[in-house]
Structure formats: C-alpha cells, structure tokens
C-alpha cells in the first residue's frame, strides 16, 4: 500500500514522521545538552514524541497518560530538582573524559545495532486471534480483574515513594 500524501493516511504518516523526529531529537538533546535544564526540555520533547507513537499504536489512553505523567509530572519534578540543586555553571551536566565518552558511545551503538538487527531480522509471528480490542473498557476491566494485585502493589509503591521522599526531603532542613 502506498498512500499519497494528500490522503488522510498520508497526512497521518507525515505526523508519525514528525513524532519520530521529536522522539529522536529530544532524546539526543536529553543526553547531549550542556545545561541540565535543556536536557530536561529535550526529555519532555522526547516524551511528547513517545506519546504520539503510542497514539499510533492504537492506545490513546496510554498516550495521554504519558503526557500527563511524564511531561506534566516527571519533567516538572526534574526541573524542580534542577532549581533546588543547581550544579555549578562551569560543568552543568558534567561529562566524563573523552575515553569514557568514546567507549560508552561505542558500547551504546553496538547495543543499539544489535537490538535493531534483532528487531528486523527476527521472524515475528502474529498472534492467531485477539481476545479483545485493547480498548479503554478492556483495559479497565483487566486492570481491575487480572492485574488487580499488581495494581494494588503499585499503589503501595507509590505511597512508599511519597513517604520516602518526604522523609528524605525534610531530613536535612535546618528549620521547618
């Protein structure tokens, strides 16, 4: 199938390309930017792209949660961390020396290459049938039936995280 750019599918394909670009570009900024704040901005851009990719994977719910949680919460928390613990201006997001940099680049590209080769080389077999459509209703149902235990555990983890960060955050404070 070869959709023309003027059709709806073609436009969707174009938007998908934009999302891919945002993801990749954002990720590159996130690891290469000199200043922490720009790295966080890059991370946010990357997450917006990832949300778009999720949307194309037919799960708008997860896409919106990605925006809500990652951009609206995690990135904001990171910016707060930057504000409260601003690194020295001369080495904002300090990098290790050139040898380590080169080595890590090498190993990371090897890893990526391996994964990509695996992804493209393997013969993925499609599931014979689908038991549901993966819609929001199905999602909610399985979240509260099959995965209810995990759901509860995650809420415990979140509670522990809240209490833990409160304890850690208050510990060093000189006055209330």
């Amino acid at each position: 199938m070869n959709p023309p750019i003027s059709s709806a599918e073609g436009l969707a394909g174009l938007v998908f390309l934009v999302m891919l670009a945002a993801t990749g570009f954002g990720a590159l900024i996130a690891v290469n930017a000199e200043r922490t704040i720009r790295a966080v901005a890059g991370l946010a851009l990357c997450f917006v792209g990832v949300a778009g990719i999720y949307y194309f994977l037919q799960s708008p719910f997860v896409a919106l949660m990605e925006l809500l949680i990652y951009v609206g919460a995690v990135c904001v928390v990171l910016v707060f961390a930057v504000m409260l613990a601003e690194p020295r201006p001369e080495q904002q997001v300090g990098k290790r020396n050139a040898i380590v940099g080169g080595l890590s680049f090498l190993s990371a590209s090897l890893l990526t290459w391996g994964l990509v080769a695996l992804a493209n080389g393997a013969a993925w077999c499609k599931a014979p049938m689908r038991i549901n459509e993966g819609s929001m209703r199905d999602l909610g149902q399985s979240l509260l039936t099959t995965y209810s235990m995990v759901f509860e555990l995650v809420s415990v983890v979140l509670l522990v995280a809240i209490i833990g960060s409160l304890v850690l955050g208050r510990a060093g404070r000189s006055k209330a």
Partner: peptide, 17 residues
C-alpha cells in the same frame, strides 16, 4: 475523541512545564 476529558487534562499539564 473518546477520551476527550483526559486529553484536555493531559495537554493542559504541559502548560505548567
């Protein structure tokens, strides 16, 4: 959109950032 309400909340959260 089926999740219109959620969409507004999700997108509005970018505003903060």
């Amino acid at each position: 959109i089926n999740v219109g309400l959620l969409l507004i909340f999700a997108i509005a959260s970018i505003n903060v950032f």
